[in-house]
Design a protein around this nucleic acid. Structure first.
Length: 672
DNA sequence: ACGTTGCGCCTTTTT
DNA sequence: GGCGCAACGT
């Protein structure tokens, strides 16, 4: 990392009086610029740390930035400095202003899975719908929110029956979310914007609080997020945004790289600084990256250069199939490590989709290579985790019917569909939540005695626990709750093996540890509802890969290309370089190759010293073996810098195993 | 009311 | 090759 800033970087830091756009190519030291600038604002320009906010898109980036700022500031006070994701900033605004927004202080966050179940429930009342349709609705609603369109607007604009039906669904969705006292990810940005637009006094309060705003990865902002930036910065536009249109890989999430160009219209006195010196990659890698991305159209022309050495050729491995690919990557990695005395943490294996990690993991385990898969959100889609989270959410926010339905009969309490349907009708009639309905006197008439008794037992359990949580030691209460409902035993009864049950229980333990940590943090902040705070943070996956020490551990890093953005590694393996994978099939169909090319560009530019790419001639897809073709992006790279490597594969299984043994022996010999 | 089994459906990327 | 979902059996 450059200690001394180059003139362009210095200019970006020193430009304080004007709104500033920094066009920062890959590896051009943009994080240095942002962090140095924060320090500059505090030490040279009279800003208090608490008047500055820096916003990023991922928790990882936020955490790293925070660490770097505080190390740069040394002993100086960084109290009150906001470094967070857009979503976290929005969450904090909503928490502080929940009254003006008509939310109770114990509101909770719905993730995509939760919103999908809600949409399914809403649809089932009208007609039958299949999954892809539901997801389409979900995306539509998300897009409308990101474009700041209200349900009313959408209903008014609808021109045909289908549009109208979708718009009506949006309206019902919005109503339900309010009734649940819940917000989704898009709402975390949307509500602050609506709030600021409708309440100039509240806006002014926040404008006074945040005097200077810095935005990282600005090309990833959507309309709503840009609006939030504009509102907070007001007409003086005291901000620095840093972005690179070549690294825009989130358009599927509503990101509008056009926001880069829009800045010039919205702020005529905008200054633009380009950072074009790359401090990361060897020349050959940078050349290949530049050549690939030159196939895309560009709004801002820039040419990245590097004064580093040229480096080794880029290796292209042609492999037989996905299993063979994983084995050979593992072998390559191991051989390279032994040759160059590097650490495992110098290596990263990058892929297009999460499912690709499985083969890699298997190969790495076989060769006893330590690794870490990062960015996988799958932990939170595990049933045991969703169950416990649902318990937590109902404790925080009893109006959350979604959470209620998930756990009302888990573990089994003899509460079946018939009882629940009657409960649901009753609640609907009175416009109250399912939980509240449990305590209504009239409910007893509607239900069978047995059903009512079961419901009563459940609702009283929740009420009692909720009460105990408020009284004090929440974590002890939660552990007691799990013991009372016998969740541990439930896992053992419902898992295929003891081993599986143990694993699932250890997941629960992990979750409880995270909750405890966030809970303690919230308590130290004197939060009035620490459990709510902790659960919402967990919903934003804030604690994932937070352990910086572990990131430093000696492990090979496995992650998706999306998750790799902003990171760098000495040696990068980019696997699955095939048509229909990268570029992905759906992107080919939607004619959106450009974003896939940027994805490839992001992957290539993660590499500092060596880059190896691989493709498999055959790959299992939907369980069926399919022939594949090498990715077009391989042919877009300068061929004189590539080294295509074929491998004569042993024909039989025995030969293959024999060869594997020989490899291992050779490696062991080298080790000793 | 609950558990099991078999069928058919996808599978991009994330806060 | 893994999920949810529907149908059936207890």
């Amino acid at each position: 990392m450059a200690h001394q800033l180059n003139p362009k970087q210095q200019e970006a830091v020193n430009t304080v009086e004007h709104p500033l756009l920094v066009l920062a190519g890959a590896g051009s030291g943009k994080t240095s610029v942002i962090t140095t600038k924060i320090v500059h604002l505090i030490t040279q320009c009279g800003y208090k740390a608490s008047q500055i906010a820096a916003v990023t898109f991922t928790n990882k980036a936020a955490r790293e930035m925070k660490a770097r700022v505080s190390s740069l500031l040394g002993g100086r006070n960084s109290r009150g400095l906001i470094v967070s994701t857009f979503h976290n900033l929005g969450l904090n605004i909503i928490r502080k202003e929940h009254k003006a927004l008509n939310f109770k202080s114990n509101f909770t966050i719905f993730d995509d899975q939760d919103t999908l179940t809600l949409i399914r429930d809403l649809c089932n009342k009208n007609a039958d719908a299949d999954k892809s349709e539901l997801i389409a609705f979900q995306q539509k609603i998300s897009n409308w929110k990101n474009d700041l369109k209200s349900p009313q607007q959408i209903i008014n604009e609808a021109t045909n029956q289908d549009d109208l039906a979708a718009a009506k669904l949006y309206e019902a969705y919005d109503r339900s979310m309010r009734a649940y006292n819940a917000v989704d990810f898009d709402d975390l940005i949307r509500y602050p914007v609506e709030l600021f637009r409708a309440n100039p006094d509240i806006l002014e309060k926040w404008q006074n609080k945040i005097r200077y705003l810095l935005v990282d990865e600005y090309q990833d902002t959507n309309t709503c997020q840009y609006e939030l930036v504009k509102l907070i910065c007001g007409r003086y536009g005291l901000f620095t945004v840093v972005g690179d249109d070549d690294q825009s890989i989130y358009s599927w999430r509503g990101a509008q790289p056009e926001n880069l160009a829009l800045l010039q219209d919205d702020y005529p006195n905008l200054r633009v600084v380009k950072l074009e010196q790359n401090y990361r990659s060897y020349g050959r890698i940078l050349k290949a990256a530049n050549e690939v991305i030159s196939n895309n159209p560009h709004v801002f022309e820039k040419s990245l250069w590097s004064d580093k050495i040229y480096g080794d050729e880029i290796k292209i491995l042609a492999t037989d199939d996905d299993i063979n690919e994983a084995e050979r990557i593992a072998n390559e990695l191991l051989a390279h490590k032994l040759r160059s005395a590097t650490a495992y943490s110098d290596y990263a294996i990058l892929y297009r989709g999460n499912h690709q990690s499985r083969f890699m993991e298997k190969a790495l385990i076989e060769k006893q290579i330590p690794y870490k898969v990062s960015g996988s959100t799958s932990f939170f889609s595990r049933t045991e985790i969703k169950d416990i989270m649902a318990y937590m959410r109902i404790l925080v926010n009893p109006d959350d019917d979604n959470a209620f339905l998930r756990i009302v009969n888990v573990p089994r309490r003899e509460i079946g569909p018939t009882t629940l349907e009657k409960l649901g009708l009753y609640a609907q009639k009175r416009h109250i939540s399912l939980y509240d309905a449990c305590f209504e006197l009239g409910l007893k008439e509607e239900l069978h005695a047995k059903g009512y008794a079961a419901i009563e037992r459940f609702s009283k359990l929740i009420a009692r626990t909720e009460d105990n949580v408020k009284r004090g030691d929440a974590m002890a209460v939660i552990h007691e709750l799990l013991g009372y409902i016998g969740y541990h035993g439930f896992l053992y009864d419902n898992s295929s093996s003891t081993k599986a049950a143990e694993y699932r229980w250890s997941n629960v333990q992990q979750l409880l540890e995270w909750i405890e940590r966030e809970y303690t943090n919230a308590e130290e902040d004197n939060d009035d509802n620490p459990l709510a705070r902790a659960i919402n943070k967990l919903m934003l996956r804030e604690m994932l890969d937070r352990n910086e020490e572990e990131a430093e551990a000696n492990e090979v890093q496995l992650m998706t290309l999306h998750a790799s953005k902003g990171l760098e590694f000495n040696h990068v393996y980019l696997v699955g370089m095939e048509e229909e994978l990268l570029p992905h099939r759906s992107s080919i169909e939607e004619d959106n190759i450009e974003e896939e090319r940027r994805l490839a560009y992001v992957g290539i530019t993660r590499a500092q010293k060596t880059l190896t790419m691989s493709y498999a001639r055959q790959r299992k897809r939907y369980g069926e073996v399919v022939d594949t073709e090498p990715s077009r992006f391989l042919f877009e790279m300068p061929q004189e810098d590539l080294m295509w490597e074929e491998q004569q594969m042993p024909q039989t299984e025995e030969e293959r195993q024999e060869k594997g043994r020989k490899n291992m022996d050779a490696l062991r010999a080298m080790l000793s």
